[in-house]
Design a protein around this nucleic acid. Structure first.
Lengths: 207, 207
DNA sequence: CCCTTGTGTAAGCACCTGCTTACAAACGTT
DNA sequence: AACGTTTGTAAGCAGGTGCTTACACAAGGG
């Protein structure tokens, strides 16, 4: 942007802190999503960014601070740009259409691959909490929070099956087919029309 | 009996390879379940077993071989002792009534905490495959395998939410309440009676 | 008794981890 | 040109990892 004109077009600047910082952020998002937070090393991140790892610590302070920035940058755009009633489907489709090439939202992949980890996963858990809070607003049932947890659990499980385990036929299934199966049942769950007892409540309309 | 008199009665033998081996196996099952495979170190395992870590490698060869033996020992008992139609509920209740003190089946906890890991998780994935195969036999639907995957995904997600994330209110919810909510919907899923919005195409034969 | 065998132990090896430091080179300013 | 600041680099540190080696001790048999 505020680039000087005396530099040849191909190489904007040889020394550009902001570009390096951005490359590090990008590489970190990639590797966190591919391997999870713990398994992605700062050396690998710096290598993929074509930078020295000392710069990573100069610009971000620590590996966990890097994760925080990655999640803040990648994560909450989708969350805030999506209306609550579309949130689940959007997130589900985001996972189902997961492609490594496209610049898709990596926060879910980071979340899925980092949950089991030991260190610094507070940041990723925070993202999950935001999701489940939005989900809870969709249910009028008395135990809305529990139902939202169960919905989030299914979303999480489907993502793990698909992205990290890669189980077939789920991993290659048509996203539309999966969505139809899941969203129908999830609607029942959140609406409270899923009858716990044997006989269904005759009046579904408490909301 | 064949014990020398100068040894207290409680300790049968001071040098007992099989007892040591068993203690190592037990300690490994505990720590794999508590922290996941990657985060559990061989030093911690040996310490909890009250043994030297060199013995761990003498008896098991490697850490991943230890995991294999733990999963083979702990895992498949429940799987084989449970009739298919009860499998899902048994596994779900096993996770919901998760207590660290009781000598419950740890294989599910190992599975949940080790999935995201990088090394040697092939063994834990194999257990999941056995589960999903049994689940698939419960469904008469055409896409039984996909439905079984989705059921397994929910089981997995609920387990992760409960034992690794610890999200409330799910983590403290009454197991019966959760089972009622989940099993009802899961029955629809596997039965094929879960109807999405539109009516189903009579021949959904494309992939 | 010595000698072999099985069991337990301490120390170490090679490597990896996040992170730091000392230093070189490019830049902006004067 | 000389300076201080910013950007980049190489080397290293302290701690941890899975795993190995060398060795002490107990048993049991000849």
């Amino acid at each position: 942007m505020a680039n000087s004109a005396d530099v040849p077009a191909g190489s904007p600047r040889r020394r550009d802190a902001r570009a390096t910082r951005r490359r590090l952020l990008e590489a970190a998002a990639d590797l966190f999503a591919e391997r999870g937070y713990d398994a992605a090393t700062v050396r690998d991140i710096a290598d993929r960014a074509g930078a020295n790892q000392a710069l990573l610590f100069r610009y971000f302070g620590s590996k966990s601070a890097l994760l925080t920035e990655v999640m803040a940058h990648n994560g909450q755009e989708q969350l805030r740009a999506t209306p609550p009633e579309k949130l689940f489907e959007t997130a589900l489709r985001g996972m189902l259409t997961h492609r490594d090439k496209e610049p898709h939202d990596r926060s879910l992949a980071v979340y899925l691959r980092s949950i089991g980890g030991a260190d610094g996963t507070e940041t990723v858990k925070a993202l999950g909490e935001e999701y489940v809070e939005v989900l809870a607003t969709l249910s009028g049932a008395e135990d809305a929070a529990l139902r939202a947890d169960l919905a989030m659990a299914w979303l999480l499980g489907i993502g793990i099956m698909r992205v990290v385990v890669g189980r077939e036929p789920l991993a290659s299934a048509d996203p539309d087919a999966v969505c139809e199966l899941v969203l129908g049942l999830l609607g029942q769950l959140l609406d409270g029309t899923a009858a716990p007892e044997e006989e269904w409540p005759p009046e579904p309309g408490e909301r």
